[in-house]
Amino acid sequence: MAHAILGITLFVLFAAHHLLNMRWFRMLGRGRYNTQRTLFVAIDALLCAAMVLMAVSSVLMSGSVFEAAPIRTTQFARDLHLASSAWGFLLMAIHLGLHTRGALSRMRAHARNTAFDYVQLLLMALIALAGVWCFADSGLLGDMLLLGTRRNHAAGVAVSFARYLCVVASVCIAVYGLFSISRMATSRRSGKQ
C-alpha cells in the first residue's frame, strides 16, 4: 500500500509539474531547434512516455489499490512497470542533470585556478565512479532491459535511497561533463576556422 501511495503521489507531482510549466509546452512550436533544445525535448518526451507507462502498468498490476477495476494482474504488466520505472528514473536523472549543469558550471568557474579546483574534480570523479557502481549494483539495467535480475533488499531503505541518490548525482555529473566536452570541441572547431 505504501508503494502505491508513493507512486500515486509521484504521478500527481509529475502532473502538477507539467501544469505549472505550461508555458514550456506553448513554446514548443516556436523558435529554432538546435542540438541542445532537441535533446531537452526528446528527453522530456521519453520521460513523459515512461511516466504514463508507469501509471498504466500500475493500474494493470495493482491488486489492493485498484481492486474494483475489472483488470486481471499479469506478469506483462509487472514487467512493463519495472521497465518503465527504471527508464523513468534514469530519464529523470538526465532531466535533472540538464537543469543542474549551469549550477555545476558556475561552481567549477568559481574554483578554477585555485587549490579547490583539483579537490572539486576529484570529488566529482569519485561521485561519478560511486554512481556507476551503485547503478550496476541496483539491478536497474536488468529492469530496463527486462532481464529479470534479482536484487538484494537486505540493505534497508536508507542505504537504497543513498545508492539511488548517488546514481542521480553521477548522471548529473556525466551530463555536465558531456556538455563541457561538447562546448570545448565546438570552441576548438570555431577557433580553427
Score class of each variant (00 low, 15 high):
26 R>W: 10
2 A>P: 11
28 L>S: 06
19 L>D: 11
45 A>D: 03
91 L>D: 00
174 A>R: 02
100 T>G: 09
74 T>E: 04
176 Y>N: 10
67 E>M: 09
174 A>F: 07
132 V>L: 13
100 T>M: 15
181 I>P: 05
109 A>F: 11
190 S>W: 10
28 L>N: 10
39 L>G: 15
62 S>T: 11
162 A>V: 14
3 H>E: 13
70 P>T: 05
122 L>W: 06
117 D>P: 00
61 M>S: 09
39 L>N: 11
87 W>S: 01
102 G>I: 08
15 A>G: 03
94 I>G: 00
182 S>P: 00
16 A>C: 02
161 F>K: 13
170 S>D: 09
128 A>I: 04
45 A>Y: 03
48 C>A: 11
170 S>K: 05
143 D>V: 08
15 A>E: 04
12 V>D: 02
126 L>W: 02
159 V>F: 15
111 A>C: 04
129 L>K: 03
103 A>F: 08
136 A>R: 12
7 G>Y: 06
177 G>T: 07
90 L>N: 00
54 M>Q: 12
46 L>K: 03
181 I>V: 15
34 N>C: 10
193 Q>I: 06
22 M>T: 13
191 G>N: 09
155 A>R: 12
164 Y>P: 03
137 D>L: 13
35 T>A: 13
178 L>C: 05
58 S>L: 00
144 M>A: 00
32 R>S: 07
91 L>T: 00
33 Y>L: 12
55 A>M: 13
148 G>K: 07
168 V>W: 12
63 G>P: 06
55 A>I: 05
45 A>I: 01
111 A>M: 09
38 T>D: 10
48 C>N: 06
169 A>D: 09
25 F>S: 08
192 K>Y: 13
60 L>N: 05
22 M>H: 07
126 L>D: 03
81 H>L: 11
98 L>S: 00
143 D>G: 10
161 F>C: 10
2 A>C: 07
